[in-house]
Design a protein around this nucleic acid. Structure first.
Lengths: 366, 366
DNA sequence: GCGCTATCGGAAAGCGCTTTCTGGGCGTAC
DNA sequence: GTACGCCCAGAAAGCGCTTTCCGATAGCGC
């Protein structure tokens, strides 16, 4: 009993295809054919090979296979943070489809460092993964786009597949595009319909396309309704629970004039809700709060959060499915509809001085 | 422009080491030596190789490398459901360490199907991953244990490393063991100290070691305090938010006699909280509620949840670290301490008829 | 019954890399 | 000045599998 290795189990480094072939009394070529079922093999030989493989507990070496076939049964998935419910939800969908298709998933979690994202792509490319899935938001960042495109283009040219969730500026890839802009606009519309005219926004890093789209859509819809958003009522924070907490705190420090706060993600909204509560503000009595994404937890908050629902798991399934389809001449875009979900965290604003009834609200049901 | 492949990018299937060697005017052997930095190579040659590699954007083929070296830079991670905050939290820690060590992570999400778990191990074994991490709870299930051990033993014998989070009955593997039993007991103690004598438990599938340990620890502690748990006040549900919701609903249907409900996981507690609220019960005024794990979201619930804190991300880091250490003769166990975190979801019970003061509570701080 | 074709198994050539082994060139010691 | 060693680069042999190419066998038609 040395070195902690169980010596009872014979040190049988690996059963190879040659072992199986030999045991079955056939050539490696035949054994390979049987195990891959390409061409026809006589029934008795096939049985002998199968029997030998079973008896020896043969497991093919995927590396050898990948090398010989110049492709592997793996897909790469890159997200910003697997601990974030948004990404976890999408990843769940990806895993489901991967399991159905018998594909391995190599996961990359960038912790929001852009270089790491490029590094992951480079690694997965070398790995000859069948497809690379970009789950995180894209960046409005030219050098980054260049670097990414530089990695992606040769990969695609060599037959690799790439698909992304949400807009990836400057990357010519198939995309599953959640309605960030339209969704934020629809949400704005619903909040306006509730009677709100004074808004605050808890936003994320301006370099994220998701931020640009959601904030843009929201602002636009307000502008069209003749409502302006005061610059000091827009607070930037990290795209995390704590970022939301801090942004809300900062908003309170600046002086909250809004009757409704929109957090660009549910995760931020969760932190904001606690910050508001800790400062003695009741939601929605004192201020309404809305998020975006509809991560699973928000129905269990008090009050349940108004948000724009994105079918997260479905997003994951779709992006995987997209990557598995053969490439087309032009990159495709699969728009994913969401819907405003009004819950108790939003209510008509407390009636201010000189208040007049809002136009009839088009209530969008859950 | 046929077949959707960008023809502008030269179809350069792959830059190989031979290409680099040729470009640098050296042999592949030398190029390999330079890129792996093993033996000494003359400075000018080294520079030429490095320059050529950079210019050609060479990426080594990990499959070829794995084949030649008989080992790969990947670890396999198997969890029950990556969408669950408990697993997502642990996975986060795993990803962090993996990134630091330059390791790839192959993720398996079993969706709680045991056969899938065995299948993943088999696949990762074939893949020659450096280590396999079992993140999900073990099962009290002999055939399953046999099947797993059957896969694991040859892998370990061939030098593979296996490490698990939480107790895996029947598997002789290194383990990071959160204090499930002791934690549940400590939590019971804290709840008793609050004055509770009537408990209900929302439990999960009895085949999970985690369930056995937590439920056992909790019951034991109650028994030692002379408190019994009525069988009809123990309700089994799935280890999910909806499972918690349904179990709580069933408990209510049976007639809630307890002053305090303990859900075996926070995820279940989240569902239970909503179920209680929907039935008009205030927490903690009408009934106290406690969970287990301290997933990030529970501080943001109303009321914030009393729970037993497990350092999830740290669990992930530790299990990874453990797997990277060389094997020892006996499998190791790394016990991870947690702590009771009393928050507002628990309070002393409403004073029943004939109530007498509880013994002085040993308050365990947050 | 003979020749041709269809079918199927085996030999062998890689896939891209590592690593051992070998050989050449140089420095050093006598 | 010659001989011995040492260091470093190149040749070549795999790692385990797939797949093309070939030859052999069997089956068919005439």
């Amino acid at each position: 009993m040395v070195k902690g290795v169980d010596n009872n189990v014979p040190e049988q480094p690996q059963v190879t295809l040659d072992d199986v072939a030999q045991a079955a009394g056939v050539s490696p070529a035949t054994a390979s054919r049987v195990l891959n079922g390409a061409t026809q093999v006589r029934a008795d030989l096939r049985d002998r090979v199968l029997e030998a493989a079973g008896r020896l507990a043969y497991t093919p070496n995927p590396h050898a296979r990948a090398l010989a076939r110049a492709s592997s049964p793996a897909v790469g998935v890159i997200c910003h943070d697997i601990g974030d419910p948004y990404f976890a939800g999408i990843a769940r969908g990806v895993m489901r489809t991967a399991a159905e298709e018998g594909l391995q998933v190599i996961l990359g979690s960038t912790f929001r460092e852009r270089e790491r994202e490029v590094a992951y792509v480079s690694m997965m490319r070398g790995q000859r993964v069948r497809a690379i899935l970009l789950i995180g938001s894209g960046f409005e960042d030219r050098p980054w786009q260049k670097a990414m495109q530089g990695e992606l283009a040769p990969y695609i040219a060599a037959g690799g597949r790439v698909a992304a969730v949400s807009r990836h500026q400057g990357l010519r890839v198939d995309t599953v595009l959640p309605e960030n802009r339209e969704g934020a606009a629809a949400l704005a519309g619903a909040l306006l319909a509730l009677g709100h005219r004074d808004f605050a926004v808890l936003t994320g890093p301006a370099s994220l396309t998701t931020v640009v789209d959601r904030l843009g859509g929201f602002k636009n819809a307000l502008a069209e309704a003749g409502v302006t958003l005061a610059p000091d009522q827009i607070v930037e924070g990290a795209f995390t629970r704590d970022g939301g907490y801090e942004a809300a705190t900062e908003l309170l420090r600046r002086g909250l004039r809004a009757t409704c706060v929109f957090a660009l993600t549910d995760v931020m909204a969760v932190g904001a809700l606690t910050a508001l509560r800790e400062h003695g503000l009741a939601v929605p009595a004192d201020v309404s709060l809305a998020g975006f994404d509809d991560i699973p937890i928000v129905v269990d908050l008090t009050p349940p959060l108004t948000t724009f629902r994105l079918p997260l798991e479905d997003l994951g399934r779709r992006v995987m499915a997209m990557a598995l389809q053969p490439a087309r001449a032009r990159s495709r875009t699969d728009r994913v509809l969401g819907e405003v979900v009004l819950r108790e965290s939003t209510a008509p604003p407390a009636r201010p001085a000189g208040w007049s009834p809002a136009p009839p609200a088009e209530r969008i049901s859950q």
